[in-house]
Nucleic acid binder design. Structure first.
Lengths: 245, 245
DNA sequence: TCGAAGCTTTGACCGAGGTCAAGGAAAGAT
DNA sequence: ATCTTTCCTTGACCTCGGTCAAAGCTTCGA
């Protein structure tokens, strides 16, 4: 009801008459998958949907952490920045991913849309209440947090110890497996981000990212039908390159 | 046995055969701090204590994840390795830290003692049962997981974008704040790990770590009364160096 | 159809940090 | 005491990836 007031604001909001959850195509990927239909209805009554255009910021590092989000479609980046502008992307998120958890009162990272992105939004207070009402949800969230920690540890290994080539190879394999996990074809890997964003994720510069792609193409390990589309031609070779000495 | 007696005499807390939890000096730091005395007793009846000597491995990457742990005293490292031996330490843990959570059936990292370390151990199955019995515990664990994610994101920024000097400065400040959080004096920062371990944590070599320490000492930003003891002489300068351009 | 803006690629050069090597210093063993 | 081992420091040199610069490609709008 109150959400309808949304004017032409940077964050366009809509609330469908029944509930956006009824037509959600990503439910099986999200934390909502752990809920029975009664609990889903309870969740649905507190949700607001949000749409972001490419480049739009959902929240910034240091903003008051008012909401938590669930991506229903689209692609986002989660990043931290330094005072002088250096930026490190901590992760790319897609359909089904949960976003906005924070122990502190402020967000610890910034979140930005790479493509048009749809999210569902809960106020933190509401979400906390729902959480203590629904043990399933809390368990699921704990599992999500644990796999996020595992992913972060893998990223730490990549940034601390891998060469540029190994980072690129690991990245392509990771993207492929992420697509597979979402039920998409894994092979022509789609890259909804620019070279700059890949670089900011892998701790490299644009130029190094580009040079590695070119080298992989010349080795015929990958094909590059378009800058944002990578055909993996030799999976095993790519896997070997992802941890080559 | 001892616990049953305790329940019969809720007001007389002194016991003949006390559980290790009764004398635990780290309880306020651990997930156990969230429990009332009844739940603590329940936890205590399932706990086993473990002692590790410096260099001993608690578990390795790929081992079947049978247990979860809580450090009561000592220092550990959590690391991932590559087939050719390159190693990346994902974090250092100390008294109060929780250890061993994994969504998968295997541990995703290796855990090793830096100093003599005491832990309490639960079987995973038992712990899962305790968890669903005690909502407080689950909430606390979720908070712990979230702050671990925040720490990992900070580490990702450090590894992806900071110079060697910035990494060392950030590391010293982090160690100082960790000591403070444990109620210890923050200033002569104690380093219970070798230069090699600092390097494996910061994505640097032993030599670079040593050279940075030497430079900081020559700048009189720190003092090095012993290799494992760092006196911070200019906090603000160190803070500036931790994100200098 | 043309131009502008933004992304990507490529080349030439350089420097931060890695590698290799050699000494010190401290702690435990004989 | 002396030897061994392990860790730390320092120096000389080199390389991987960053920086700077310029030129292709797309896309989009006039």
């Amino acid at each position: 009801m109150a959400q309808i007031i949304a004017l032409r604001q940077p964050l366009a909001r809509q609330k469908a008459a029944p509930s956006p959850c009824d037509t959600c195509t990503s439910r099986s990927l999200t934390i909502c998958a752990s809920l029975d239909s009664e609990d889903q209805a309870k969740m649905a009554s507190h949700v607001t949907t949000v749409t972001l255009q490419p480049g739009q910021t959902l929240f910034s590092e240091g903003d008051e952490a008012e909401h938590v989000f669930n991506i229903t479609s689209g692609n986002m980046s989660v990043a931290k920045s330094m005072p002088d502008g250096r930026r490190q992307i901590a992760g790319f998120l897609g359909a089904g991913d949960f976003l906005g958890a924070s122990t502190k009162a402020e967000y610890m990272v910034s979140a930005e849309a790479l493509t048009e992105t749809h999210l569902c939004r809960f106020s933190r207070a509401t979400f906390r209440r729902l959480l203590s009402d629904m043990p399933c949800l809390e368990q699921r969230l704990l599992a999500v947090a644990e796999s996020e920690i595992a992913a972060a540890q893998e990223q730490i290994l990549l940034l601390g110890r891998k060469t540029a080539m190994e980072r690129i190879a690991s990245f392509l394999l990771l993207q492929a497996s992420r697509m597979k996990a979402r039920g998409m074809a894994e092979n022509p890997v789609l890259l909804p981000m620019t070279r700059a964003e890949v670089g900011d994720y892998l701790g490299l510069t644009i130029e190094t990212v580009s040079r590695c792609f070119t080298r992989l193409r010349k080795l015929d390990v990958i094909g590059l039908p378009a800058p944002d589309r990578v055909q993996i031609r030799q999976f095993e070779q790519l896997r070997a390159l992802s941890e080559a000495a």
